[in-house]
């Protein structure tokens, strides 16, 4: 019984460590996808002048992962409701909260951009898109740096903490 409990505790701590490590592994990838999506949006606005709902759906089909789901949701919501773009993004972020490994800062960049989408002329929107893109790029680089250090740390720390607690309680 004692052994069974110890094994459960150890596995739980290991799992927790792996989950934390996955956060650091997924965040740079999702930031990159987000940046690709913004680039796609840039082309859609600059060359095709696609309406926003259609543009978002098109982008969603081009990328993959949870970000694609986010874009598809935003596209369909834009087509159906008459709410502001940044509000829709906020609901989208809360809806996909479980799948997105993005920090508050990352979401803030997107929400700031969304507030300017669809309410001004093409040039202004493109400027904002470029700004958000470069912001995301910076965040991505920082996230990649964090990944190399913290992903490994949590991978090891989880099992070790589990073993420590087991030894303490045994």
């Amino acid at each position: 019984m004692k052994l069974f409990g110890s094994i459960c505790l150890f596995l739980a701590c290991t799992g927790y460590g792996l989950i934390r490590a996955r956060y650091y592994r997924e965040r740079p990838r999702q930031l990159q996808q987000l940046r690709l999506a913004l680039q796609g949006l840039e082309t859609e606005i600059e060359y095709a002048q696609t309406p926003l709902p259609v543009a978002f759906v098109r982008i969603a089909s081009r990328i993959n992962g949870p970000v694609a789901g986010l874009c598809a949701f935003v596209g369909s919501e834009l087509a159906e409701s008459s709410r502001a773009v940044d509000e829709i993004f906020k609901t989208a972020f809360t809806k996909f909260d479980q799948q997105l490994y993005l920090t508050k800062e990352d979401r803030e960049v997107i929400c700031l951009l969304a507030a300017t989408l669809g309410i001004s002329d093409r040039k202004d929107q493109l400027k904002h898109l470029k700004l958000a893109s470069s912001n995301l790029h910076q965040l991505e680089q920082r996230a990649a740096e964090d990944r190399t250090r913290l992903e490994k740390m949590w991978n090891y720390l989880g099992p070790l903490l589990g073993a420590l607690i087991v030894v303490l309680l045994y």
Binding site: R149, M153, L157, L164, V167, L168, Y170
Partner: peptide, 22 residues
């Protein structure tokens, strides 16, 4: 043995923290 185990694990954890500049 318990004290020895705790010592080893704490040493390992602190080594990991040190290796990631924390």
């Amino acid at each position: 043995f318990q004290v020895a185990g705790i010592g080893v694990l704490v040493a390992a954890i602190s080594a990991i923290f040190k290796s990631v500049d924390k």
